[in-house]
Nucleic acid binder design. Structure first.
Lengths: 344, 344
DNA sequence: GGATTTTCCGGGATCGATAGTGTAAATATA
DNA sequence: TATATTTACACTATCGATCCCGGAAAATCC
């Protein structure tokens, strides 16, 4: 007979008290007697009352929700960050909306608009490969809504917090590791040049070569979107063009695995003919044969720190805290794909 | 000087027209002149107006949002379903809220409550391993909010749509495949007995044995939460207890891989000593050595169909459609882990 | 016991957008 | 020109919860 969901007014009507009192009772306000609270709680349970968060959020002008924008959830690194984010968010009473850009700027822009329309209290974002500026994110700065980058960030937004890893150092370590293992001609699979993280990984690559008196050869750097097929194609391109290499540093594991597959298929020995280092420590990198040397980014930690920072910014309401950058130091995980006998 | 975000009233005030007209103009209603629309659009852009979905949703009593509850996004199967879900949802103008239960009933209940409070228009759910009844989901049925199960469903909710695979048949095929390859003593790694899908996989396992005159030995069925460590432990348990096996049918890939790791470590040959079949076709199953024979569930298709069904139910508002069950037929993918020479 | 403070609750406005109805102006018709 | 009809917008209530203000009742004090 009553079709709609019960509201506080419904409860108020039945109990013959005012709806404000019901609201206060449900919120456990000190301005209501325990006796009244009990009555209200009982009746609410009886009617199956469920607070309408739309109304509540509208009135309070806050949603207790944070938006998370990532390229794709199927990447282990990102699902780890989400796990970290959710852990922190949950204990602080925040909800999380997860959105995937699928590496498309267009989608990312739509998502961001939508999060704004949904009035999230803050946003955590790791931008897509197509994102070369933060124009679509300016709204947050202008409206004083906290935003924290993690991992992939925009260089044109200086006044923004971020939690990143030292990509340059990580790449430097990876390449140095290959050099120590005796590699002289190291190729680098890089991502879209727009992205800071790939620029920095390239920078680390170059610096490592420089510091070890190896001349930088631009033909050895191949840019792509770093999917498995890209890694496969890049390896193929190098070998079929007769470009001689004895090591590969790939900017992610997936492309490294593509290379592994090509090399194995063409009877190249890993690591003895070509040693390989990936990036991100995807679970698959441990299982593949040979297992892949890679850089562990500890996504879970990054997620936790980014979310901590964001919530802190939300709760302090203080823009002065906004500009905080946390740089984590990733660690090299040595596995078979670089385990040569022929070290220095 | 103006701190808050602009509203339609703000636009109305500036243009000296009524806010309803602004609303209608922004919604491109035919009840407003093009001239007025142009003015409103221009001013909205100028002020950086962003519609407040909270208010809009409250007023319209619909959110254009569907809630998705899955055990964990890091599982490839689930991230594929999400991709399918998002594709369909997006083209129909729906937003998606993704939530992970992390296989905990407690979390699942909280998530569901929260989705209700957020007034989602419908919900897609694949329940956690701890979920043995649908009590926390009754609200949807009672309030006529569409709900569609996919993959993991509750048997105690007969009047609910679901998109599932024929787990029994898939298991039957998998075990028959092992038998054809010459296995006589096939172990089965099963999940929590509460879940329909694991019951059905066990059923298919038993039926296949029966149909091929192999006696069912309860000692060969090991239940766990099917994590990698569980598979490892299960394999260890079988071998150290001196239980002789020559085949394993695992109810998911992750546990199968645990077994692979244990067996390789203990110098058992796969597939000649023990042949293995997993379930789900996780990407890792293709990469591991030996590559894993498994069942492909085509998560993307399941997600698309489930979302289609849900949106149809939402838009028709018709409870008669609710009870629709779609059963997909999964396919066996043969790889090295079951590729024995010693077939029948 | 009267005055003052405290306690507890009611009334009404409000958040921002939208739907239904009302009304003046514009247009069409006679 | 007077009337009927359409057009284009204004007005107002509403969604459900919350917050500020104020008033009556109860408790406290002198």
């Amino acid at each position: 007979m009553k079709k709609g969901k019960p509201t506080i007014h419904e409860i108020a009507r039945v109990l013959n008290i005012n709806s404000s009192t019901v609201s206060r009772a449900l919120n456990n306000s000190s301005r209501v007697t325990q006796k009244t609270k009990d009555k209200v709680w009982a009746k609410a349970k009886e009617l199956g009352y469920q607070r309408n968060l739309l109304a509540s959020n509208l009135r309070r002008n806050q949603t207790n929700t944070i938006g998370v924008v990532i390229p794709r959830i199927s990447r282990h690194f990102f699902s780890s960050t989400i796990a970290g984010i959710e852990e922190v968010a949950f204990t602080s009473g925040f909800n999380v909306i997860i959105c995937q850009s699928l590496e498309e700027l267009d989608r990312e822009q739509r998502i961001v608009k939508n999060l704004i329309a949904n009035r999230v209290d803050g946003i955590l974002i790791s931008v897509s490969m197509e994102t070369d500026n933060g124009k679509h994110l300016e709204y947050f700065r202008d409206n004083n809504i906290p935003l924290v980058f993690f991992d992939r960030h925009c260089e044109d937004m200086p006044g923004t917090s971020k939690v990143i890893i030292d990509d340059c150092q990580a790449a430097y370590d990876a390449v140095t590791h290959l050099i120590r293992k005796g590699c002289k001609k190291i190729a680098h699979f890089s991502g879209p040049g727009k992205l800071e993280i790939y620029k920095n990984r390239l920078k680390g690559y170059k610096q490592a070569l420089l510091d070890h008196q190896i001349t930088y050869d631009p033909r050895l750097v191949l840019s792509s979107r770093l999917m498995e097929a890209d890694g496969y194609a890049s390896a193929e391109k190098l070998l079929t063009n007769g470009i001689d290499i004895d090591g590969i540093f790939a900017a992610n594991d997936v492309s490294a695995i593509g290379a592994v597959k090509y090399l194995k298929k063409n009877d190249k020995k890993i690591p003895d003919d070509v040693a390989i280092v990936g990036f991100s420590n995807e679970p698959i990198s441990e299982v593949i044969e040979p297992s892949l040397t890679t850089i562990d980014q500890s996504g879970f930690e990054i997620g936790k720190m980014a979310c901590d920072l964001l919530i802190h910014n939300i709760q302090s309401g203080d823009n002065l805290v906004h500009n905080k950058t946390i740089i984590l130091n990733p660690t090299l995980i040595e596995r078979e794909s670089s385990n040569r006998k022929t070290g220095i």
